[in-house]
Computed example of a mutant assay.
Amino acid sequence: MAEIDGVDRSFALAALQDNGFVVLRALLSDAELAAARDHADDLLSGAGWSDNDFDGRRTRRVYSLLSRAGSLEPLLLHPEVHHLVTAGLGEVYQFGMLFLSAVDPGQGAQQPHFDAGVYPLPREVEAEINVIWALDDFTPSNGATLIAPGSHLWTAGRRPQPQELVPAIMPAGSALVYSGRLWHAAGHNSAETTRRALICEHVLPWLRPADNHILATGIDQLRGLTPDLRRLAGVAPASDYLGFVAGQDLEQWLRQASSD
């Protein structure tokens, strides 16, 4: 499995391109990890289990994170993840699905899937590059994400066999960066502890994201985000004539609307 301690950007990019994923180990300092865990627990507190098999009937998820990113913001904007995403998607991209996940004891393995499958695009198109941040150690017993190495290059219609899925084992504070075409699934948590993660999808700017972050965040709270987060929420135009409001760049529109 492609793992990196102390990021070699060239090696990381080559691993992502060749294998469809790379594990960047221990990207967060102890203080950053502790703060992210505390904030994640605050957000997850009171969240109920999902109501369907795919999301997980013993899995808790929290969406609409941008207005309350708090100590998760360094993860959302981490430069090593940003470097890999821009190499694959270009300088302008946006958040797709963005959520916290807590896989509780007893949760079974998820159905294998690839995230870009929501888009009716040819398999060879790289529409998204995503990251799973490990807020706990990912182990074979606590439901570490299962991945099929190299499956981002498979032809349409091929699905992974059980023996082709291997756990992405990594310590807390690490990031699994992977192609949106990579087959994967949350694993079975047979341990006695919960496995927490932050999942952040990054998609091409001209695609409709899985989550509508502008509506979920709201105009007033959108203005309060940092410029980088605001752009990733979908404010950055995909081109001169794609993504404007009333004939204006959305950033300009937000400034004007706030002064009216």
Score class of each variant (00 low, 15 high):
36 A>P: 01
259 S>C: 06
218 G>M: 09
129 I>C: 04
239 S>N: 15
230 R>D: 00
136 D>R: 03
160 P>Q: 07
55 D>H: 08
20 G>C: 05
109 A>I: 09
141 S>I: 12
185 A>V: 09
73 E>W: 10
229 L>M: 11
250 L>I: 04
134 A>D: 06
17 Q>E: 14
30 D>A: 15
76 L>F: 06
118 V>K: 01
158 R>M: 14
25 R>E: 12
20 G>T: 06
248 Q>N: 07
59 T>F: 00
56 G>V: 08
100 L>E: 02
217 T>Q: 01
256 Q>E: 15
66 L>E: 00
232 L>Q: 00
73 E>K: 14
177 V>I: 11
117 G>F: 07
105 P>M: 07
97 M>Q: 12
226 T>E: 03
204 L>H: 08
108 G>L: 09
13 L>D: 12
235 V>K: 00
130 N>E: 09
66 L>Q: 02
79 P>S: 12
108 G>D: 10
103 V>D: 02
31 A>T: 14
210 A>P: 01
253 W>K: 01
80 E>A: 14
254 L>M: 05
167 P>L: 13
78 H>V: 01
105 P>K: 06
17 Q>Y: 04
17 Q>T: 13
113 H>V: 06
130 N>A: 05
214 I>N: 00
6 G>V: 11
56 G>Q: 03
236 A>P: 02
13 L>H: 13
144 A>E: 11
234 G>N: 00
228 D>V: 10
